[in-house]
Write a protein that binds this DNA or RNA. Structure first.
Lengths: 190, 190
DNA sequence: ACCTGAACACCGTTCAAGT
DNA sequence: ACCTGAACACCGTTCAAGT
């Protein structure tokens, strides 16, 4: 599994095919389909199934490749949150960014809710996100706005959970309310 | 779809087959399998697939039949919570019961996270649970321990979400912590 | 090297044929 | 009436055969 943007050592035509598959996969995922069948992608991209598997060794790997840009953007947001002069605002920003990213991008939601990563780059991004989240949490804890026992993995799991809560309802207008509930719930007990 | 406990107007042997299927389905589900394939159930129960479908018109209907006893127990818990002399304790009891039920019974988790019910009895139970939850919420709101805008459906969605958060981690020891976070988060903002 | 697509082992669901 | 199990349309994944 390589980066979606022009992996090194790949022939021009092969890179073109790969780009077309990723574009078509993104289109299928954004069309509302919750899952992304390999055979459906092959047909949509006009290639054989084997070609899909040559570039993405499994459905999970495909989702990770698709999620990578959004994942990187989320890491950037988390780092910015860690540098926010207001630790409480940084904390809220981190949660909001994580939740928004998952609600906007189904592939990112799938990757974040799955424990083990298939490709190296995804694992690296997870590591980086964890480190940024740790800094956000340390500062928020020092400022007394989060419980002492909250870990970066708690943030991951709870935002995944809130995503499910938001999506299992008709309207998505409850995002802000549920985000408030999560932020308040993470505050230290009085 | 009828009640799993001896539906009316069913021949003795048919009722026996139905009971065996439900018992085997329960066994499969508790064995850790997250989903319950109809063909696998047929093989395990020693019947043809058609027989499974004769009793349970779909996989969702099967899950609902399987969930019914637990669902009824949860409704009873919710009613008890509504009668708790302490409204705050009643609120916590409701959330704890809903969460515990979903973590213990995969079929109940599936049913609660699915919006529409296939069988009448499941829909009725959902109605009853909603009414009990409304009473719990009304009293908790009057006592000032929950936000004014929380609805019974919020409780359903959020407990489903917290279940996902609990399950997406290695250990299930975080139930109590996540429950605290949810209870605190539902408190009125200061 | 890279691609194709038939093929395998699974899903949920249906339905003609049996008792 | 009730049951059986082959069959259909799908999944993810593999691999011999082609360019």
């Amino acid at each position: 599994m390589e980066s979606p943007a022009r992996p090194a050592g790949l022939r021009a035509d092969s890179a073109r095919v790969r780009a077309r598959m990723l574009a078509e996969a993104r289109r299928l995922l954004d069309s509302g389909d919750t899952d992304l069948p390999m055979n459906a992608l092959a047909k949509a991209a006009g290639v054989g199934v084997g070609t899909v598997y040559r570039h993405f060794p499994s459905n999970q790997a495909l989702l990770e490749a698709l999620a990578e840009p959004g994942y990187a953007a989320l890491v950037a947001m988390a780092r910015a949150a860690a540098d926010d002069p207001d630790p409480a605002a940084g904390m809220t920003d981190l949660l909001r960014a994580a939740l928004h990213a998952q609600l906007t991008d189904a592939s990112l939601a799938a990757v974040l809710s799955t424990p083990g990563a298939t490709c190296r780059s995804t694992r690296d991004l997870g590591q980086e996100l964890g480190e940024a989240a740790r800094r956000v949490l340390d500062r928020a804890r020092a400022a007394g706005v989060v419980r002492p026992d909250v870990t970066p993995d708690d943030v991951r799991r709870l935002t995944c959970g809130i995503r499910h809560a938001v999506r299992s309802g008709g309207n998505l207008d409850d995002v802000d309310r549920y985000l408030e509930i999560l932020v308040d719930g993470l505050r230290p007990r009085p």
